[in-house]
Design a protein around this nucleic acid. Structure first.
Lengths: 207, 207
DNA sequence: TGTAGCATGTAAGCCGTTACATGATTGA
DNA sequence: TCAATCATGTAACGGCTTACATGCTACA
């Protein structure tokens, strides 16, 4: 089982650091705050959106490694200063090297809905159906969000790759919706017997 | 942004602890070692398979909370002892309560292939295509593994829910395969211009 | 003879989170 | 006037991983 789990690259930087570094490519200069917002609109859909505090700490690390530069500017807020970050040529080169030299890990899915369905015999078909319906609902929200984003970037020729990823996400969500719908339907037929299993269940896998 | 990130339940146990606890339902008694193997064949596909050391520490925690019991038996290996764990009635009750009382989080996806594709303009269409083809290859492996598992559990009436999850996984992988195939095809048309973007790219999202 | 599998753990460390601390501006 | 937004961080903690430590049995 050599599922190379995001080995720390020679730079000592993790995938998340490179992800944030890459986002800087799409901006001239950004504050940490703004970068977090950008992550919420992009990374969130296929990686994850780091906490505000992590954004700052990753930026600090990238700064120390020379992959980004920073300058302080006043405001907004009279006494306060804002730090604006920018990717350096070295940063860009390192990002490219990382993309070319390192292997992509197989995607990691933490799917708590599937996990709960796995134990469905404990709570019964009606509960499982509600679980799936709740998930379907949240999927619809996600789809709306992502559709809005895709519509906004669709025709920008500079954003072909982000657009592909957005489409990937949409098709993924739509596949999920279809599967969930089918499973819920199948459970509807079973609704008769509630929480049927009192006995110890059998082995879920053969020897 | 209230994406309730796996809040520690009143028990102080995380999802992973409940996941392992739930796996014990499918066995009379297991060693930590065997539980890890079971996790590799089940949890891995929709949650993640914890490291060996984590399996032991979660079991220890569950033991202290009285949700599992343990007994030591000799062997195999003359001087060595094996600890066999078993879910307690309390454990089962707590698992049910957790399933019923807590909300399922929206699935978390760490998709490094999509992340890399997002930055595809840095490495060019041929590289992106290779990335997708490599992923497609690994997807095929996963599909084979999961198909074998599904075939083995398919007709056991006690394992209806695990079978549903296996099917979910298969359909998910098949959707991924289809999307990846289409994206790779689209990139094939673009192969002419290698690494086209030297200029700073534009904003990936509208103001 | 050596390596893979069975079996159990401890220790160190990083990744990422929540909670905390601070403070100005804008708009309801 | 009160909340939201902009903006920057620090501290504490938990989850999970890798590395380390140990040793037997079966098999090639």
């Amino acid at each position: 089982m050599d599922d190379l789990e995001s080995e720390p690259s020679p730079d000592g930087l993790r995938t998340t650091a490179y992800a944030l570094l890459g986002l800087l490519l799409f901006r001239e200069e950004t504050s940490g705050y703004e970068l977090k917002q950008l992550a919420d609109r992009t990374l969130r859909f296929f990686w994850f959106s780091p906490a505000m505090s992590q954004v700052y700490s990753e930026l600090q690390r990238l700064l120390e490694a020379g992959l980004v530069s920073a300058r302080r500017v006043p405001g907004p807020g009279r006494g306060r200063t804002t730090r604006l970050f920018r990717i350096t040529p070295l940063g860009r080169a390192r990002l490219v090297r990382w993309l070319e030299a390192s292997e992509a890990e197989f995607p990691i899915l933490k799917h708590s809905v599937a996990l709960r369905l796995f134990f469905g015999h404990l709570t019964g078909a009606p509960h499982a159906r509600e679980l799936l319906q709740g998930y379907a609902e949240r999927l619809r929200e996600r789809i709306s969000e992502l559709e809005a984003i895709r519509a906004a970037i669709r025709d920008d020729p500079e954003l072909g790759y982000p657009a592909m990823v957005a489409e990937w996400g949409l098709r993924y969500y739509e596949a999920e919706s279809a599967i969930v719908r089918d499973l819920a339907r199948r459970l509807a037929g079973d609704t008769a017997h509630e929480v049927p299993s009192t006995s110890q269940a059998a082995d879920p896998s053969p020897e």
